[in-house]
Write a protein that binds this DNA or RNA. Structure first.
Lengths: 228, 228
DNA sequence: CTATTTTGCCACACTATTTTCACACACCGC
DNA sequence: GCGGTGTGTGAAAATAGTGTGGCAAAATAG
């Protein structure tokens, strides 16, 4: 779940934002001034900050500069309409976006999703190796093409995740519950039979004799293990 | 260390840029108008120029022409609106680039590194290929004329951008969100359905059997991929 | 050896994603 | 304003992926 920090001194606006963002499924924290915000940022990590430009004490821009010294936390500035827009535009470069009050909720939500969208693939591109190799098999994580004794196929997204999960722990036994958490997510409740099923399908591709698995081994009472 | 020249008359924007680029490890100089820029260029060498199109006195385009007389310094144009887009498109083909304000820092940095990368690895030969060739198809980026199994047509600007985006990543899967960010821009909020639509149209031209795509492949749950 | 638990495997229902279509709408040059 | 083009949307149809239940087979415990 994404965490958003609201830095806003006007309680009604802060409350409204908090309510609405929470309703959208974000985890929200509120700081009513710059110092409180910095403290919160030190204590926990956020994915995005909504910062009012005009605040007593430290203004939004100063806060931005301080935040930037230690992190690249994306920032959306909130600013009253009549202020010098050029200044905002210039400084907004250090952040990621800005909105002028009064803004409507839909627009804010769109900007937020847009920023998350952007972040998600900027970080995704560096995620290391794109081809897993093991036993006589390989899996291209980019195209999801799998090659093994059982031939050549394209895995589904989830099949690939499951294999990757095992691959990252090869040589260790992995319980079905671990797979469910890691691949399906902690909020999903498929049965453990489902896991067996995915293993079954993976074996058809990666085992030369799927009935006597040597690559994706069963460990009775525990789970599965990818051979090291 | 790479040296970047900022040509921007609006002090706050210039400051913001300078701050951020310096923080990214570039050496930055600022000129507040075209003449100052030319003087600076004479005195020292730069690796890249960021040029505001709209400036009092000499505008960005004129400046570009003058710079071009003596060097091949890559230029990124900063432009307020998309009205100038047609004009810019012509100039941008020389390996340069442009950004429409307001843009965010991440986007700018990405363009900068991409220009440096391009320079280092193709300095001699293919500076500015204007025709993309793949499978049995081709696309002329200047005329936007596309030729493929589906016949010959002229693509719209966005269609061409989408194809180019895929082309630059052929062999890699590209998610709809990546396309939205890369082709539509971070401030655009069309749905991912829109992406599907463009793919649909592209397939009609570049696939011999659009219903069974082999060139622009779907990767279910992930996105699309142009065959390498 | 038998009872019990765990795993393998299949077929099928059900979900989710993608494709495709028809249409709305904005924008541009006339 | 009036078409024409280019873009974006929503909804239905097509397709691929996922989860479930059942039962058989294998492993373990007693």
């Amino acid at each position: 779940m994404k965490r958003i920090l609201i830095v806003e001194d006007e309680p009604n606006l802060a409350d409204g934002l908090e309510m609405n963002l929470t309703a959208e499924g974000y985890e929200v924290a509120v700081a009513e001034n710059g110092n409180a915000a910095l403290e919160l940022i030190e204590r926990m990590s956020f994915d995005l900050a909504l910062v009012d430009v005009m605040m007593p004490g430290m203004d939004g821009f100063s806060l931005c500069k301080k935040i930037r010294k230690t992190s690249h936390l994306p920032i959306i500035f909130l600013t009253a309409r009549s202020q010098d827009e050029d200044k905002i535009k210039g400084l907004a470069l250090g952040g990621d976006d800005y909105l002028t009050k009064p803004f409507n909720l839909g627009e804010l939500l769109q900007r937020i999703t847009s920023i998350f969208r952007r972040m998600s693939w900027e970080s995704a591109s560096e995620t290391g190796r794109k081809i897993l190799t093991f036993a006589d098999s390989e899996l291209n994580l980019e195209t999801l093409k799998a090659t093994g004794p059982g031939g050549e196929t394209f895995l589904s997204h989830r099949e690939a995740m499951a294999l990757k999960f095992l691959y990252e722990r090869r040589g260790q036994s992995v319980s079905r519950d671990m797979l469910l958490d890691g691949v399906w997510g902690y909020r999903a409740y498929p049965s453990t039979r489902t896991v067996d099923n995915f293993i079954l399908r993976l074996r058809k591709i990666f085992e030369s004799d799927p009935a006597n698995p040597t690559v994706i081994k069963s460990i009775r009472g525990v789970g599965y293990m990818l051979d090291a």
